[in-house]
Simulated assay, not measured.
Amino acid sequence: MAVRELWRLSVDSSAGTHIRLKKAQCKKYAPHRSVPSQDMQKFVGTARLEHGADVALFVTTCRAFTKDALVLALRQDIVALHRDLLGSWVKGAHLESLIPLNGSGGDTRRRPR
Rank of each mutant, 00 (worst) to 15 (best):
W7F: 04
L95Y: 05
W7N: 07
V79N: 00
S14T: 10
L85H: 02
H32K: 12
A56R: 13
K23Y: 07
R33G: 00
D107W: 13
G92V: 15
L101Q: 03
W89K: 12
R33W: 11
D107A: 14
K22E: 05
R4V: 14
A64W: 02
R75C: 09
L9T: 06
D68Y: 04
T17K: 10
L72R: 05
R63N: 13
A73L: 09
A53D: 08
K27W: 02
G103S: 05
V90A: 04
L72E: 09
L57F: 09
C62G: 10
N102W: 06
A69M: 11
S97G: 03
R48A: 02
G105S: 03
L98G: 01
G105L: 08
G52F: 08
G105F: 01
T60H: 04
D77H: 15
K42D: 12
S10Q: 03
L49Q: 14
K67L: 08
K23W: 05
V55E: 12
A30Y: 01
M40C: 13
K22M: 10
K23V: 15
K42Y: 12
S34L: 06
S88N: 12
K28A: 09
V71N: 08
L70A: 06
G105A: 04
C26V: 15
S97L: 10
K28H: 14
R109S: 02
D77V: 13
T66F: 00
A53Q: 07
V59S: 01
Y29H: 14
G103D: 10
A47Y: 00
A93S: 09
S88P: 03
G45R: 07
